[in-house]
């Protein structure tokens, strides 16, 4: 599998030149309860969507900033993937979705009482967004608001 240093010159350069905004500080909302009292939601940029939902638009200039709700009750074998990244090969994810979206692993933590519960929904973006304005101003805050509505304590985020 490719790591950053294994990438070709062009891809390494693209990532280096990617318009990631530079921040000087971090927001901080520390956890104020024990982990076994927390409700957790998973957020991924793996491009997952469910049958019946619109796939992500891999042709959209600047990237698709939209998101899909993933039901906590889904059978992970039923998840579909649409991703525009040139450096992400989803074949291993198709073998085991937990590689990117560790829903079954978190169900196991819930069964063991290590976390209190999983939220009834999780959220999937596609990533590979070179023009993130809509993401920063609209879709990411929308997801944040939905997580507040759901009384989620912790968001666990995984990239590809």
């Amino acid at each position: 599998m490719a790591s950053f240093n294994d990438l070709g010159f062009l891809d390494r350069h693209l990532i280096r030149l990617y318009p990631f905004k530079k921040y000087n500080t971090s927001p901080n909302s520390p956890l104020n309860k024990p982990l076994d009292q927390t409700r957790i939601a998973l957020i991924t940029t793996g491009g997952f969507y469910m049958d019946g939902q619109q796939p992500f638009n891999i042709k959209k200039l600047g990237g698709d900033c939209s998101f899909r709700e993933i039901a906590n009750s889904i059978n992970i074998q039923d998840l579909l993937i649409q991703h525009s990244s040139s450096v992400y090969d989803p074949s291993d994810t198709k073998t085991d979705v937990n590689l990117v979206f560790p829903l079954v692993r978190f169900r196991e933590l819930e069964d063991k009482g290590i976390i209190k519960s999983l939220n009834h929904r999780h959220f999937s973006f596609m990533g590979s967004i070179s023009r993130p304005k809509q993401l920063i101003n609209h879709t990411a805050p929308q997801v944040a608001k939905l997580l507040i509505d759901d009384k989620v304590d912790v968001a666990f985020l995984t990239p590809v």
Binding site: S3, F4, I15, R16, Y18, F20, K21, Y23, S26, P27, N28, S29, P30, L31, I43, T45, F125, P132, L135, I136, A140, P141, V143, A144, K145, L147, I148, V152, D153, V154, A155, F156, L157, T158, P159, V160
Partner: peptide
């Protein structure tokens, strides 16, 4: 950036990164 937006509203977040320089 998604993580920052979620933490901004008061929810604790943690993530994994594959590219440390981006983080």
């Amino acid at each position: 950036m998604i993580q920052r937006a979620i933490e901004d509203v008061g929810i604790t977040t943690v993530s994994i990164t594959l590219v440390e320089n981006v983080a």
